[in-house]
Write a protein that binds this DNA or RNA. Structure first.
Lengths: 108, 108
DNA sequence: CTTGATTTATTCTTTTTTGTAGAATATTGT
DNA sequence: ACAATATTCTACAAAAAAGAATAAATCAAG
């Protein structure tokens, strides 16, 4: 059991990108969204490993896309946040908000 | 240089607690501050391991407290954020802010 | 048709970095 | 010596990261 109850940094990023993409979220688009929204590049391996972990923790669910899309390429695996994933994300933000609250970081 | 450019989740927490405590930041007080501000408990080993890692990355600096404090116990090792640590923290927050921006998470 | 190139996307394997715990040890005051 | 306070050490689990390998579908030839 242990305790790793908190979302890792990258897990939060991936979850947020997934949420932003709504029903267009799948591995490749999530990677693109992260880069577009934040400028941060990530390997495709890192994305999927995180997605799988998050699904195993029930923070998101996946389903395969239609069998015959009108384009080349392997079928997509779509992801979406579960209620637990939404709660975890909100809890993470609250933790950070509390720590930032009242703090002023003066750039020396 | 390579890659680990981003702060981990717990690294951010520790850095923020250190910043909040200003010149009263040392291992034990940081652990206490995290718990008081967020309710999150952490082992003392986790705190120091992270503190050491953060110092190695030059995100914070440490110095030993005076040799003869008026109390029992081993001398304290005080920590404070470096300019790079401040920047890293601000960068982390900006990343999250960008991902949260315009997103509404509906609790189903 | 049937094969091969092309496109799009996911899976797999490996390694490094972070996160976590708790026992052990060190330093100082009484 | 003992109590109090704090840090260091040791070991291991989980998360992050990279990139090659593989898979599935479409399309253009021949």
């Amino acid at each position: 059991m242990s305790k790793g109850n908190y979302l890792g940094e990258f897990e939060q990023v991936v979850l947020l990108a997934t949420a932003r993409l709504a029903d267009e979220a799948y591995g490749m688009s999530i990677r693109r969204e992260i880069e577009e929204a934040t400028g941060r590049k990530s390997s495709i391996g890192a994305i999927y490993a995180t997605l799988d972990r998050l699904e195993a923790k029930t923070f998101l669910e996946s389903r395969m896309g239609e069998a015959t899309p009108k384009r080349g390429g392997r079928p997509k695996r779509y992801f979406r946040l579960s209620p637990a994933g939404t709660r975890a994300l909100l809890a993470s933000r609250r933790t950070m908000d509390r720590l930032w609250d009242g703090l002023e970081l003066e750039p020396e």
